[in-house]
Amino acid sequence: MTELTLDVRDISKRFGDGETGVLAVRDVSLAIEPGEIVLIMGPSGSGKTTLLSMMGALLRPTSGSIHLDGMPISMMSEDRLPDIRLRQIGFIFQDFNLLSALTTLENVSVVAELAGVKGRAARGRAQALLSDLGLGERLDFLPEKLSGGEKQRVAIARALVNDPPLILADEPTANLDSKIGHEIMRLLRAVAKQEGRSVVIVSHDERIRDIADRVLWLEDGALRDIVTMATDPVCGMAIERERAVSAARDGETWYFCSRGCRAEYLGGPTAEAVIEGPAGDRQAADRER
């Protein structure tokens, strides 16, 4: 059994008491594996940010538990939480939240220094990360001199500098145009798939579905629907498993956007079996019509 990066069990968050109290998150359970990308969507006021804050050890749930890499962060004393946030979690924000007085390099290295890495080593680590993200020529720039995409890449480097197993991203593409948004999504996918980190994204941006392994719908503080995403091996389209047509081959289940893709795929080596889900049938039929 794979060890979970994040294990959220029955958490609720209530703000205020009595009749004026608001239950922002109710009985949410969620398990996230290493290398998994989970997208949480939902209308404004649905509790997404509250949920993200609790997963980020910035807010304590009223009830339920959160385990990060096996550590019960919801039970920890306030004194221990900054260290958890510093070393176990990387944050990416919609507004980037770079420190305006620091250069690109300093914005990243300062977080490593906070974790105890000495000055030169911290700068070296930050420089390597920024260079990997294509910002090698922007090290001495102040945030105000960077484009939105560059700022978000700096934020990603900052989130990664202490090598955390979990990345929490709050609307990471909201302030970016389409092209840059795609670039950031590609980066986040690489962070998860190449480095084995778990990535939780809260967003309204439908495009992020393309890179997510699972999409969760949060409404009125509760998860209403869970969609598991897959990539069509023929056309590369991101698809919801529950609504896709599928086929099993070589002991593995594959998901397709349409019967056509499945047929094309099965035209190769012989399949062991063909499974068609009812939802997949309906959707595929709709597309073919």
Binding site: G56, R85, I89, N97, A101, V111
Partner: peptide, 17 residues
């Protein structure tokens, strides 16, 4: 720089820092 301090806190900086 109130927000900057909030950011640093969120990222894991302790109050004493």
């Amino acid at each position: 720089r109130r927000r900057d301090y909030g950011v640093l806190k969120a990222l894991g900086a302790r109050n004493r820092v």
